[in-house]
Simulated scan of single mutants.
Amino acid sequence: MKKKNKLTVTSLVAVCLVTIAAPQVFAYSKIGYKLVAGVKDRYYYVGASSLGSNIDAAVSNWNNIDPLTYFWQDQTDVNFIKSSSNSTTQLDFYSDYYGNTGWAGMTYYFDSAGAINSGGYPTKDYTWCQAKLNLSASHNNSWTTIAGHEMGHALGLMHYTNSLMDGDITNGSNLPTGITLDDIDGIRDIY
Rank of each mutant, 00 (worst) to 15 (best):
F110R: 01
D111F: 04
G52E: 04
D96H: 02
A104I: 02
A58Y: 02
S142K: 07
V78C: 13
S95A: 04
D92R: 09
L68I: 04
A154R: 00
K124N: 13
F110H: 12
M165I: 09
T89W: 05
F80I: 10
Q90T: 02
N171V: 06
A147P: 01
S173H: 14
G119Y: 06
T88D: 12
L164D: 07
F80W: 14
L133H: 03
H149K: 06
W72L: 03
W128K: 01
T127K: 13
S50L: 05
A131R: 14
D66G: 04
N174V: 00
N117E: 10
Q73D: 14
S118M: 04
S118T: 11
M165Q: 11
W143E: 12
S87A: 11
W143N: 10
I146V: 15
N79T: 12
N174D: 10
C129E: 10
D74M: 14
A113M: 08
A113I: 03
D66L: 06
Y160F: 14
I116H: 06
L164C: 00
N100T: 10
H159N: 15
M151Y: 09
N64G: 06
S118I: 14
Y98D: 00
N63Y: 15
G47K: 05
G148D: 04
N117M: 11
S85T: 03
I65A: 09
Y121M: 04
M158E: 11
Y94C: 02
A147I: 01
H139R: 15
S60Y: 12
P122Y: 08
G152D: 00
Y121F: 09
G119T: 11
L157P: 08
D66V: 11
K132H: 10
W128Y: 11
G152V: 01
T170Y: 03
G114D: 01
N117K: 02
N64M: 07
T123P: 07
H153P: 03
G105N: 00
L68F: 09
I169M: 10
Y70Q: 06
T144W: 02
W128C: 12
Y97E: 13
N61D: 09
N100P: 02
A113H: 11
W128A: 00
L51K: 03
D74H: 00
N54K: 07
Y160K: 07
N63D: 13
L68M: 10
T107L: 04
D166P: 06
N86W: 03
N64V: 13
S87Y: 10
S95M: 01
A137H: 14
T127G: 14
S142I: 01
P67R: 08
S95D: 05
G99K: 01
D74C: 08
N171C: 02
N86S: 15
S49I: 00
I146M: 15
G99H: 03
